[in-house]
Amino acid sequence: MSPALIITAIVTILAAATVMSLRNLVHCALAMAITFSGIAAIYLQLSAEFVGFAEILVYVGAIAILIVFAILLTRSGESPEKSVLTSGWGAGIVVSVLVFTALGWAVLNSAGLPKAATAAPETTVKNIGEALMGKFILPLEIVGLVLTAAMIGAVIIALKEDPKTDNSGRKS
């Protein structure tokens, strides 16, 4: 295990914890961008270059910006005075700690995990492209369809309604 991997893992974990503990939403979104960059750095160290760059492109370049826009459009950029937690937050914390304990126990005690470190796999962008266009062509097409549907759906949902119609859709 290299020191670089340990450092990026610690930064990622700290940033993730920051995301969920800050009160101001914009700070949360910025910490989220750090988390995603950390995850991309871990991908790079696991010799998955293409996925790492795609992670930065999609998450830092697109989703973080989208979230920031949504925060400003819903006027939640200021820190709220009231509590930021839901009414049943204690149970939520307990359940998530249980989840982490169970997963961690399973990871540390599982006998089936490959023990020996293997050499880094040689993957080029060419391999990935050929796999996408060959073996995985059907999922690729379906993802294209899903993305188109999601785009149209998002536009329709967020579209400004005709001011003449009220909430129930009737013309007034």
Binding site: L30, A33, E49, F50, F53, A54, I56, L57, V60, G61, A62, A64, I65, V68, T124, V125
Partner: peptide
């Protein structure tokens, strides 16, 4: 990098965050 062009565009995305 094998995916140099992708790297260039991915890195460019962070500029928008800085502007914000």
């Amino acid at each position: 990098y094998d995916a140099g062009l992708l790297f260039f565009f991915a890195i460019g995305g962070a500029v928008e965050l800085a502007v914000f």
